[in-house]
């Protein structure tokens, strides 16, 4: 009987750690994006590379990522090499250069490599507001039907990529 009681703290702690484990990774600040399950909002933006107008119909027909970035954003510096690596392995990424200047963005891509299928210039940030982003970098996963299935806030790296990759398939 007494022995049984001595195990009680251990058992209570085990239960607590299960609860804590389940809760890790859920962002307590997370506001579920209302875009999940919807198609990408209407937009018409200028492409960085060729100054052509790009709209929804030009989006890829296969699963892809929409990645919001900017040359002003420190975390994007860290994220960029990983995106280049992903693009090499065949992941389609549409970049949105958010609240940024064209010349700086060109410099950046020349210097660090260009992982993007094409880069849209969202200088005023309207598209960002439509997508409901809260900062950069921020990445959306869109499936082959053009429906947003996942949103990732913050940089993509080797640790969190498996989760995102899961949604991409």
């Amino acid at each position: 009987m007494r022995k049984f009681f001595l195990f009680f703290p251990f058992v209570a702690f085990s239960i607590l750690s299960v609860v804590l484990y389940v809760q890790i990774g859920k962002d307590a600040n997370y506001m579920p994006s209302a875009l999940i399950g919807q198609t990408v909002p209407e937009f018409t933006l200028v492409s960085l590379t060729d100054d052509e107008l790009v709209s929804n119909k030009d989006l890829p027909n296969q699963p892809y990522l929409i990645n919001f970035w900017g040359t002003w954003c420190a975390a994007c510096h860290v994220e960029h090499p990983y995106l280049v690596q992903l693009a090499r392995s065949g992941v389609v990424i549409v970049g949105v250069d958010y609240k940024d200047k064209k010349s700086l963005a060109e410099q950046w891509l020349n210097k660090k490599g260009d992982p993007y299928r094409y880069v849209l210039m969202d200088e005023l940030g309207h598209f960002g507001v439509d997508m409901g982003i809260t900062g950069a970098p921020e990445t959306f996963v869109v499936d082959s039907q053009g429906v947003v299935v996942y949103r990732h806030q913050g940089e993509i790296n080797a640790q969190n990529w498996p989760v995102i990759e899961g949604y991409l398939q």
Binding site: K3, L6, F7, P9, F10, F13, S14, S17, L20, Y21, I24, G25
Partner: peptide
């Protein structure tokens, strides 16, 4: 996850030892 692992090893271990 890492710090939870740490918690489990240190606290869980010592509570088990205690039991």
């Amino acid at each position: 996850v890492f710090i939870l692992g740490l918690l489990i090893v240190l606290i869980g271990g010592s509570l088990l030892l205690y039991a």
